[in-house]
């Protein structure tokens, strides 16, 4: 296996006046499960479309398995599997028809590569006579993955595969990806869900066409420079306003019912903060020291960049 599966150098993509990808460089090693984390509009889909030879970059060099995405696009199409963000199989064909259609246009058959998709396809095989449009979200996703895998690709591009899929199916899906990776397939996956970052070997945090940071999830968390408190009180919004004003506060972000408060180590004492909030009339105040999640890191990087 090639030690470098994907290499991108100074890649820029411009749509007329908008800069979709702004001078990014990175490498993905063979056999890695690599995640791109970022909100909508960060440039994840554009990046994937370039790597799968659907878009031509404005500037920069991209190689997939040593092949240039512009010059050798035809060979790349033989070795990569792509699952677009939007479900894009034939809704009016059955599960089985979709799969054999894609097998045929890749010049193979279902039987030939059945081993590879067995785990995934077995779960939807009972419904193989059902039309793809009538499948549930999780099943559609499994079918799409099967179709992307049917020609035994060396590298798999999954663009937001878990968007709009329930929590259980999402977990199952990541299990499948890990098994595929263990089988030797390089996987690039994008997701807007920060919590999924921890399931990747390495992640790139993307924002507004730029990569803010690339590392293993554990290292990214270790690099988090601040101390962090999770603060809970009755009402989130007044609490948030109060914490923004509190001396020593670096950032305050809402996380569901609680607020994550970041600050320079030692500048804020939880006990003092508790007293302060009580005097300001906040009830049921709970303060807890926590370690950062990827989302905290992401928020922090956004203020820096």
């Amino acid at each position: 296996m090639d030690p470098v599966a994907v290499s991108v150098k100074n890649l820029t993509l411009r749509y007329k006046t908008t800069l979709a990808i702004d001078d990014i460089s990175f490498e993905v090693a063979g056999g890695e499960l690599f995640g791109f984390i970022g909100p909508d509009g960060a440039g994840k889909t554009s990046l994937f479309r370039i790597l799968t030879t659907l878009l031509v970059p404005t500037q920069g060099a991209c190689q997939v398995e040593g092949l240039d995405v512009v010059k050798d696009y035809r060979q790349i199409r033989n070795i990569c599997g792509y699952m677009p963000g939007k479900f894009s199989l034939y809704q009016d064909l059955t599960v089985e028809e979709n799969l054999s259609f894609f097998a045929t246009i890749f010049g193979t058959t279902i039987a030939e590569n059945y081993d590879l998709i067995k785990d995934i396809y077995a779960q939807i095989e009972p419904f193989k006579k059902r039309k793809a449009g009538k499948l549930s979200g999780g099943m559609k996703q499994k079918l799409a993955l099967s179709c992307a895998l049917i020609h035994k690709p060396q590298i798999l591009f999954l663009d937001e595969p878990t968007t709009g899929v329930d929590a259980v199916s999402r977990r199952e899906f990541w299990e499948m990806l890990k098994r595929l990776r263990d089988g030797g397939i390089t996987i690039l996956v994008s997701t807007p869900y920060m919590d999924e970052a921890e399931k990747c070997d390495r992640v790139a945090l993307m924002q507004a066409g730029k990569i803010m940071k690339i590392n293993t999830p554990a290292e990214i968390i270790k690099d988090y420079p601040h101390a962090l408190l999770s603060v809970r009180a009755g009402d989130v919004y007044p609490l948030m306003k109060e914490l923004m004003k509190y001396p020593g506060t670096h950032r305050a972000d809402t996380f569901g019912q609680s607020v994550h408060l970041s600050f320079k180590k030692g500048e804020i004492q939880p006990a003092e903060l508790q007293k302060h909030l009580s005097t300001k009339g906040h009830t049921n105040v709970e303060i807890e020291e926590i370690t950062a999640s990827i989302e905290d890191c992401f928020m922090d990087l956004m203020t820096i960049n």
Partner: peptide, 13 residues
Amino acid sequence: EIGTIEQINVTPI
């Protein structure tokens, strides 16, 4: 419209 052209375009067809 349904996006299948994307899926077709990444194949070697």
